[in-house]
């Protein structure tokens, strides 16, 4: 039986209200509630949003994130967070996260799901073809430059240090010089 306000008034009109009202009137003592994060695995991390560098604890159980909150041992944020930092749980539990590679063909109006192997192989092929077709060993003055201006890359301040280092190393090995990222804008 649905007891909305109206329903209840009707219900009580039947003088059965006593069964509802007739038990202990004192404030109830709470039963001890279990803590959702008890026995969860704790992993420290640093917030991915701004550059204050706040510490977070990610609670996980069974390989899934169950809670995220500020790291009380972190000397900068001391357990606190801003609204963005407090939201990182939703970077995991998020149906908009893309979880498979996608491809958009020339002239197509949609994405299609593709395998990693196919996508990476296609990209490697494009890199080589474009690089070979546009590689400049010497510039118009005859100086050795060994580069291509026809492939460019932007990003990213969202990468880890090790990844930034690897990415610039990789791009430069291909001869790219149009390498830029958030720091310029």
């Amino acid at each position: 039986m649905q007891l909305n306000r109206r329903g209840f008034l009707k219900f009580s009109g039947g003088a059965v209200a006593g069964s509802v009202l007739g038990i202990g009137l004192k404030a109830a003592e709470a039963e001890a509630q279990p803590l959702a994060i008890q026995y969860a695995r704790e992993t420290t991390t640093i917030c991915p949003y701004c550059a204050v560098g706040c510490g977070l604890i990610v609670h996980s159980r069974g390989g899934e994130v169950i809670n995220t909150e500020g790291d009380p041992d972190h000397p900068i944020n001391r357990g606190t967070l801003c609204s963005k930092g407090a939201s990182i749980y939703q970077l995991r539990h998020n149906d908009k996260r893309v979880t498979e590679p996608m491809y958009r063909a020339k002239g197509s109006n949609q994405w299609q799901k593709v395998s990693w192997d196919w996508a990476l192989e296609q990209i490697a092929e494009r890199i080589k073809t474009t690089r070979d077709a546009t590689f400049m060993e010497k510039n118009s003055k005859g100086q050795v430059v060994n580069r291509t201006d026809a492939i460019a890359s932007v990003g990213s301040a969202a990468l880890d240090n090790e990844e930034c280092y690897l990415l610039q190393k990789l791009l430069r090995s291909w001869g790219l010089v149009y390498i830029e990222h958030q720091a310029r804008i």
Binding site: Y49, C50, S156, A157, A158, D160, V177, H181, A183
Partner: peptide
């Protein structure tokens, strides 16, 4: 600085 690792990405010079 505005991104979590924009200092690091600058230090590692993802810049022309």
């Amino acid at each position: 600085r505005g991104e979590s690792n924009v200092q690091g990405s600058t230090d590692h010079c993802l810049l022309f």
